[in-house]
Structures are given as structure tokens and as C-alpha cells.
Design a protein around this nucleic acid. Sequence first.
RNA 1: GGAUGGGUGGCAGAGUGGUCGAUCGCACCGCACUCGAAAUGCGGCAGACGGGCAACCGUCUCGGGAGUUCGAAUCUCCCCCCAUCCGCCA
Length: 426
Amino acid sequence: MFDIKWIRENSAVFDGALKRRGGSLRSAELLALDETRRKALTRAQETQAKRNKLAREIGAGKAKGENVDALLAEVAHDKANEAALQAEAERLQADLDARLALMPNVPAADVPDGGDASYNQEIRRLGTPPKLAFKAREHFDLGESLGLMDFERAAKISGARFVVLKGALARLERALASFMLDLHTAEFGYTEVNPPALVNDAAAFGTGQLPKFGSDLFRTESGLWLIPTAEVPLTNLVAGEILDEAQLPTRLTAMTWCFRSEAGAAGKDTRGMLRQHQFTKVELVSIAHPDASAAEHERMTGCAEEVLKRLGLPFRTVVLCTGDMGFAAQKTYDIEVWLPGQGRYREISSCSNCGDFQARRMKARFRPKGEKGTRFVHTLNGSGIAVGRALVAVLENCQQADGSVRIPDVLKPYMGGLDVIRPAKA
RNA sequence: GGAUGGGUGGCAGAGUGGUCGAUCGCACCGCACUCGAAAUGCGGCAGACGGGCAACCGUCUCGGGAGUUCGAAUCUCCCCCCAUCCGCCA
């Protein structure tokens, strides 16, 4: 969410940013509305000031036993006018806010321009895709052969884009999540949080899901939203708060289910568990000092990459171009893991620096030491990493000729010492 | 779901119609004292918005909304949230 004052003073930057994102120029229209709004506000405030003054005079006059009928008549006369001016100012304010709430964040200066994912730029690549002496199978093929991944029964009870995991695969998902949480908490200083998976409108607005992207979410009958990512509850933990500067950075991690309607994804990744309505993810969130958020972004991306390094999964990291970034992001790194079954890299993590965009929406501030007033914090979020897709990646990268799957060393303690997942006996 | 009690500035906690945007304390900031620190003393300290080059002036905000009144933190109504007890329940 933008500060209209910032747009007023940086209209060229604002329009340039929208243009880079493929939008149309809007500052002139917004500033005209703002001009009207401020004039209406001033008029309304002048009448309020007058009323306050008269009310004080009436009070003082009455205390002295004077006749205040003339003053009372004057107040009564102004009353209708004041209400109308106030309503007008409020209407214009609401109109401006509604427009600002739909504006995406400005891309950082070092984000490449481009309209779609083909303009994303690879910045590094680690690990080597495994050389298999046999034709690599896709994860759903492996999982079903193992007898531990069941899409048909999931469809029976829930519909498309759900899966049932059993036995060693169910445990593998739990092992992956535990490993990730242990890594982030023990080595990277994140605090583990177990947040609500249902949030209210204000929280969904704060991180930018509302008002524009409500159709991507599931909504309960009572009006709550199922979280599409733990970014929503974790980031909103500081909503409306004024932090001490010493509390920055606050680093949080959570394993949660994520729920996405996948509206508009019809036909994409229909087979397998790459794109589900419900999936497990370990999320990383940082509440950072504005001067430190760029460095925090690099650090967070490194934390996510470390998960893949230790699992021995080949990956590459790309910086998203302006046209491929999310609504709230200033800059985003995607980490893509190698999937032998598909023979290509697929997104497994997305780490974004949102600057003060979300902080403004949720009014999350801090008090700079030795300075007057408050400043908005910067918020960052990243998958650390998507557990469901990590399970897919382990299956495909660690598959063996006989359809069995080798367990990465770092996961063995979490798997009760199991080395290999073998097909269930027929 | 029922009953009761609450939601006030970073925290804690007064305030039941008229300079209350709000007493006092803690925290924080500045100054003094000190070689330095602690303790102590003095002073400052809510946020947002609008106007102004600025000093400064004004408006709004005491969970949210509506109302009564010349005037509401304070009275009325609705809603939300929290605490405790009861019921139900993983």
C-alpha cells in the first residue's frame, strides 16, 4: 500500500514502477483525487473547529449563568452543513484508499524488466542432476507404485488436487518438515511459531491477499479465510504494533498447511501433487529494519537454499522479473529444484522482500533509537521450503532402478533409521 | 451456547457529561551531579491526518460502528475481542 504523500513527491518514480510491471500510469488520476480530498477535508475541519469553539463558549457562558441562546442557534444552523462536508471528505478518503489498495508494490531497482517468467534471470546453480542408468519416473508414478500415494481415494473424499499419503511417505513428509524447522531454529535463529490457519479480513488485507485476490483463497461460512501460506499469520503478528528497534530483525518460522483454491490454474499440473488445494509448507518470515532488509533478503534465500543443499537436491536460484513478481513484493528470488521425472527445474521456494508495502497496510512500525516518531518496518517472507514439493523432489532425485527411493542422510534420524523406501509387498 | 466482568497512550493503571488527548508510575530520550556508572534531581515523551517556508495552528482517535447532547473516554443501542465460571467438546 502506498503513501499518497510519497506518490505526490515521487510521481515519476511511481508511474515508472507501474509501467515496469506492465500497468498503466495512474499518478495523475490519484493526485487529482487526493487534491479534491484534501480540499474537502480542510473544509470539514474548519466547520468542526468552529463547532468546538462554540461548544466551549456555551459551556463557559452557562457556567457564568449567561444567556447562550444565540450561540445555540448558530450551532444548530451549522449542523447539517457540517455533516455533509464530513461525509464528502470521508467518501473521497475511502475512494482514494480503495484505489491505493489495488496498486502493486514498486519493483526494486535491480529487478530485471520483463512481462513473464521467460525474463527471469538465473543467478546461481548448485548440485548436479543425477545421472540415472534408467528412465526417470515422475513422483506420482513412483508413489503409486510404492502403494503409498493415493489420488483416487483422495478424490473420493475431497475431489481433484488432493492426495493421501501413507506409511513411509506420510512419515517422509513429517521428516522433511521437522528437519527444516530444526535447521532454521537451531542454526539460523528463527523462532518456531504455531499460528492459526484461519485468519480474518484485516489479516488477509495486511499481507495483500485482499481486496484483490480473495478468489484464490478458501473462505469459511463465518467469514474467515484459510491461509494460503503462513506468511499471512506470521507477518500479521506485528500488525498494529510499534516495536522497539532492538526487536529487529524478528525471525519467525512455522510449519502449516496452506490452502489455495487454484482458481485459474485449470489444466496446470493436473497430475501428481505439485499443485494441490492443500499442502504443507515451512515458512520463513523476517520483520526487518528498513536499512537491513536487502541483506536480510539474501540471508533468508540462503537459509532456504541450505535445506536443498543438505538434502542433496540440485537447484538453481532465479531473480523474478517485474512481470512475474507477486503483488506485495519489491524483489523476489525463486528457488527451483531439479525434477528428473520432468527433466526440468520447478519452483520449490519463493523469497520476497516486501519493503514497507505490507507494513503500511497493517500499520507495523518501530521506534528508531534516538529519533522522533516512528518508521514502518520492512517485511520479508520465503518458503523454507515447500514440504510437498520437497517430497516430490526427494522421490524423483533419489529413485532407484527398482522403484525404491533412497532416504537422504539428513532425514534418516527423522525416519527411524530407514534407508530406503521399498514397494509395499503385493 | 448461557452468566458475569473487562477492553484507555510502548507497558502498567486512574478517570462516570465541559480546556481530558487524558493523573501517577515504569520504560524511553535530554540535561545536571559523577573520572565513569549507578542512585538522585530537573525537563521531555501517544499516533495519524490537514494547513504553513517555519515557529506553529487545526482535525480525528480512549476495541469498532450508530445514536443522544451545544459538548461524550464518560450516557444509550448494535457488533467484535479478552478474562472467569457453567454447559458441550478434540
